[in-house]
Nucleic acid binder design. Structure first.
Lengths: 235, 235
DNA sequence: GAAACCTCATTTGTATGAGTATATAGGCAC
DNA sequence: GTGCCTATATACTCATACAAATGAGGTTTC
């Protein structure tokens, strides 16, 4: 996948971060001293400290002289960080988790689409159209097609003009992609979502904010339904 | 304010991070080598590297052997990180920025309130009530009252039961607090927002999701109006 | 002449050992 | 008990050395 080999400090950060997110290191629990801990991981204190520095920056832990290093309350975790998301979804996709991400998406994306309808430039529109064409050409069964799908949604977020929505774009779409990737593999004949996308595009092109919101809400809802169907009926 | 003295690595991270966010170090621009840069900041290479490790974790920069260290595209910046928010708002509150944060809030909070109405426990409700009483007793002119205000909104986010909304709570409320703090100081007779809060509370208590959404939307809109009025009419 | 390969220099990454700063706990005087 | 002091554990900072990665440019090979 990623061509460059992972560095030691990243590896340790990922390992410890994953332990925290999986609950193996509960909030409030402490770490041993740096020398001891670094030794246990088979790395130098330099590497161990840089790894911890990353986790501190993501809100997972905090450390103070004399008190030691402790896992912070989940309330402080930067859940929308891309690394943290990938650490959470490292093994199997949790159904509860994907439900929550879709719930967020169902709120964010229609609003972003409405804003995009009002503020989009021609350049934004062109990006969306390119993405749609790419989706049609490649199909959603291919990596290329899914990439185009993400590009379409990213273009909408960008067109919203709101930097916070833009910042939300990457983690939300990434999480959705991660939780639905296996869906495409399992589902025999996935529903064709291209018409839904085209309806959103048309609304944004017409600068019809209301229609953009409605069509996007429908798109997300349908995707959500597909997801639930693929993951197996539970409720 | 914060009792503990800031460590060197945090200080350097804050300084450089602020330079990036203020545009003094544009995306794509590179840093000098570690030895040279650390020397310029008057710290050891260890401290400089740990500072950079924090900025990497927040998505502001990236570094690779031989290529050096560069500012990443704003698209990758973790804008909802509490540190980054405080760095952005370090000197004067930008009106465009506060407009965007209110725009996000106007989307997120009504949805959170609706979800809270459906899922809140009695404990959540008690927290909201306590916060309301505290607001009434202390008044929004005091730090204590504003703290209670934040607690009220935080309780709603928690009651939503969605971890992503909970994760959004802290940065959104913090940013709102930062941009509106000076409003309370400047505005001679700020509007009493307590009734708006009580209406939201009543709707959540009744488990009326629709009313919760509507009352919260109203609350945010009114706060937004106040904000625009205080910051001076622009449009 | 083009392509694969190799060498080298530059930059970040890792290791180690020493010393400093800071906050907690416990003792001591009052 | 209350306030102050001291000891100590822990993270923080420093300096130096070496290792690994990578991009550039030259070299061989066909």
């Amino acid at each position: 996948m990623s061509g460059r080999r992972e560095r030691m400090n990243q590896l340790v950060a990922r390992k410890i971060g994953t332990e925290i997110l999986k609950g193996e290191r509960p909030p409030g629990s402490g770490f041993r001293g740096e020398i001891e801990e670094a030794d246990a991981w088979g790395v130098s204190r330099t590497v161990y400290r840089e790894a911890m520095r990353s986790l501190i920056a993501k809100g997972l832990i905090e450390s103070r002289p004399r008190r030691g290093t402790h896992v912070r309350d989940p309330h402080h975790w930067n859940l929308l960080d891309l690394d943290i998301l990938s650490w959470i979804l490292s093994d199997e996709p949790d159904p509860a988790f994907s439900g929550e991400i879709f719930e967020l998406r169902a709120i964010i994306e229609p609003a972003a689409a409405a804003m995009a309808a009002q503020r989009r430039s021609d350049a934004h529109l062109a990006r969306m159209e390119d993405a749609l064409n790419q989706m049609e050409r490649a199909g959603l069964a291919t990596d290329e097609g899914r990439l185009a799908d993400r590009a379409f949604h990213a273009a909408i977020f960008d067109a919203s003009g709101n930097n916070f929505f833009i910042a939300l774009s990457a983690p939300v779409e990434a999480a959705v992609g991660m939780t639905t990737r296996f869906k495409q593999e399992n589902q025999a004949e996935p529903r064709d979502s291209l018409p839904d996308h085209q309806a959103v595009f048309a609304a944004i092109a017409k600068q019809d904010a209301d229609a953009a919101s409605r069509t996007m809400a429908k798109l997300v809802t349908l995707a959500w339904d597909d997801m639930r169907l693929a993951v197996g009926p539970r409720d």
